[in-house]
Amino acid sequence: MIESIGASVRDKASRFLYALAFFGRVVDRSLRFFRRRQVGYKVLVFQILFTGVEALLVNAVMAMAIGAAIIVIGSSLLPQFGQSRLMYDIMVIVITKELGPLLTAFIVIARSGTAIATELAGMVVGHEIEAYISVGVDPVSFLVVPRVIGMVASLALLSIYFNLFGLLGSFLVVQLIKPIAFAEYFQSLLAALAPGDILSGMAKSLVFGVIISTVASYQGFAIGRASTEIPVAGIKAVGQSFVLCIFADVLITLAQYA
């Protein structure tokens, strides 16, 4: 009993150390990425296209829906407390600082996190990673780093889009409930929006991008040799990315308000 607990602890500690070493290698190779003649730019471009561009529609729809929901709920509740002017502050906090980055991260986890984990896992099972090593290609530099950089860039891009569409969506709903001029709406939003809000949202997006891409790559590489483990890699990548993103979100928010 004690022996099996000890073995389990040793196994977990060794996995944790391996994950840390993997992360260290990713950081090291990422810092060198743009300084070298690269064959990984194509992977980077595809990652940005898949994660950043192809997710725009889903991201935009969700952003508009959230923006609209805030306006609908806020316009019915806030006047009861005489706090209608708080509408714009709530919108900025929810869309730009809190829900925007997190929901964008969730979309990316569901689309790209699973894709990265299962694709890399498939490559491990098909011995493609060994083939890269056999010709002198470092799999981390060639396969992981472009995905990490692409994911971070894409999340920053999607975060900006989420803000734009979230605020646009709410404007469209405002027109249905209580039509106001765009200039007035825009000025009220700008008055509520501080540079720190945008920076906070961007910082979260960057951290989430690193988390999702690194976790998905790690899980992809960490599988054994059976093809049945490929979907398991995807499931683990999603679960761990969700937990770590929420944890990071809480930490960043605490740091801002502490």
Binding site: G122, M123, G126, H127, E128, E130, A131, Y132, S134
Partner: peptide, 10 residues
């Protein structure tokens, strides 16, 4: 290195 199952990059 020539692989048993090819190990081509799909």
């Amino acid at each position: 290195f020539g692989f048993q199952d090819g190990a081509l990059w799909e």
